[in-house]
Design a binder for these strands. Structure first.
Lengths: 337, 337
DNA sequence: ATAAATCCCTAAATCGATTTAGCAAAATCG
DNA sequence: CGATTTTGCTAAATCGATTTAGGGATTTAT
């Protein structure tokens, strides 16, 4: 491994001159040429840890997902999110450290910050309480951008997909298609996104003057099975809703299955609307009409915000919202058609 | 930020003693107590970059995916693979740097190694030629473990899922179910896994004495559309096969759609076998019978191998193969039943 | 009792790059 | 022309932890 000293010796200049030549400070033409040649000859690459120590930064950020299990839901959007982050970092010469931790091992994340293992971090907290804990234990000037808004602890910096707007959009879409009896299969209560979705669902139903029947609102846990079970319970009711809004695509798949099992045609007899637009939405039959979460864009914008904070530049906004959009496929139809 | 010097001053000892106390070397009870107290009081955490510089290692490895686009196939297995890697690293106190690069930006990966930005790397090359380029440009003693075997350039260290065995398993499974006329929808030629799968498919068909008809073997590019198109072409043939083996699940979904569009019942009229066992396999209807790739295990074993190399310990084997398994769902049925 | 080995500790060197301070020569200015 | 500025360079300090080398004091061995 060649060092600045080696280059200096070979080029016949001081280490200072080598550093200056390599970092674009002014040196004579002659010195520049000789340093460049020597560096080339020795295949020189500055050692990152030495640079980091001197510079007081490590040129990388962390992206941490807090999730207690191998939650299959993550499959659906992890890759585009990572790609969005990666793209922004590349343009700043930064790299990404990634990890999956559980609510009980948040200390490893705090340690990363305290040890200056990363210059800042992006966090997908997933569960209630996580945002609060992180905001409390992290040094207050350490750059963090949350990628989900926890209504209990408003994060200072956040780039989130607007869950409430998404749900509002979903229900208004069904309403616009003529549906007045709407059932729902919600997610697990401890999930941060779910509380927002639930709140917005209730609110929107009120606004549109639609009946909120407790039999029509079932609790699931975001997997196929629970969607199936929830749908069965809904279909057991005296009067069936004309449309079902599921709080994620997996549960919508389960609902689809339950419906066709009792001989109902989707979307003719009953419409089913998903949420997330993960891979499964396009693969099911009928293909799911669903609400897309622009996670690639979210990754990009969260990374941009974090980089702005790290560079110490002025932030346009501390909290950014991204709007979901409806993706029409084949599982929703106009009511009564 | 407190440093060893600050602790030393507060505890009334030298920096050396602080370091020794904190790193378990023998110091007097008294010194240990005072150092620990001081460290606690100042909320001391050793700075990683200083440690790295001195130690000559950075306590992190890189995981790099070489892929030119936002390939949706990655959604299916990225998360469990990352989780497998993360799990192993955590037990060694290492962290993971992640990036998605393209075949034309492999130099960023080489630079990471040369700058000592990571102590070793895991690479998912995806395309032919990538393995070769990396092996050529990287310092020969730099620890790398490939996660896909490129038949053109046998990687020195590799933990791969045995694609040939998987295909063999797939075709033998169909054969055991009584199928003798087997069609296939293959993947893109430039994809490393595809050449292995194709080769094994041909070989296995020969072994089982089954006819290899070119109309029955269509080329796809791993997405739903191409599976649909390939299936249509196969169904246009004079004689239809009794089973179709698709080289991934997405194409199998497309094939399923094409079949039901022309009024064929899957699996009664024609069986369809997928490959990969991604999320969509469980979500389709009928749910796909497919070949599962144990990617979580792959991530674990690749990370283990890399860590063994980094620690300079003896390696049990330089190349490890992981066997896929059949997951029976509902898209394959006994022939003629 | 003297030599040898242990124990506990510290000063200084080290990892490798960048930055600061400062020096001589050349260029510019009034 | 003398004074000031600019240019091009280098020696040394710096970032913060760990490691090396070595010095007293105490204990063990002969």
């Amino acid at each position: 491994m060649a060092t600045v000293k080696d280059i200096a010796r070979l080029a016949g200049v001081s280490p200072t001159t080598v550093s200056w030549a390599l970092n674009g400070k002014r040196v004579s033409e002659e010195s520049l040429r000789r340093v460049l040649e020597a560096a080339q000859a020795l295949n020189y690459h500055p050692k990152l840890s030495a640079r980091s120590l001197r510079a007081g930064k490590v040129f990388s950020i962390g992206f941490y997902i807090v999730n207690p299990s191998l939650d299959p839901r993550l499959n659906g959007y992890l890759f585009p999110m990572l790609a969005g982050i990666s793209k922004v970092l590349a343009s700043d010469g930064y790299s990404m450290q990634f990890d999956i931790i559980t609510p009980s091992t948040i200390d490893v994340l705090i340690k990363k910050a305290l040890e200056h293992a990363v210059d800042g971090m992006l966090v997908l907290p997933q569960f209630s309480g996580v945002t609060e804990q992180i905001m409390r234990d992290l040094p207050h000037d350490f750059p963090v951008v949350f990628m989900q808004s926890d209504p209990a602890t408003k994060p200072r910096h956040c780039v989130a997909i607007d869950q409430m707007k998404g749900v509002n959009l979903a229900i208004r879409y069904l309403h616009a298609q003529g549906h007045r009896e709407i059932g729902m299969i919600a997610g697990p209560v401890e999930h941060v996104d779910n509380v927002l979705r639930m709140q917005s669902a209730y609110q929107t139903m009120q606004e549109l003057d639609l009946a909120w029947k407790s039999v029509w609102v079932q609790q699931g846990d975001f997997d196929i099975e629970s969607g199936y079970a929830g749908m069965k319970r809904i279909l057991d009711a005296d009067k069936k809703p004309s449309a079902i809004f599921c709080f994620n695509d997996y549960m919508a798949i389960g609902a689809l299955r339950a419906a066709s099992e009792v001989g109902l045609n989707v979307p003719h007899d009953i419409s089913i609307l998903g949420f997330d637009d993960t891979d499964v939405a396009e693969a099911s039959s009928p293909a799911l009409t669903t609400i897309q979460q622009p996670v690639f864009e979210q990754g990009q914008r969260a990374a941009s915000m974090l980089m702005t904070m790290i560079k110490g530049e002025e932030l346009a906004a501390a909290v950014e919202w991204i709007s979901p959009i409806v993706v029409e496929r084949a599982s929703v139809e106009r009511a009564g058609s």
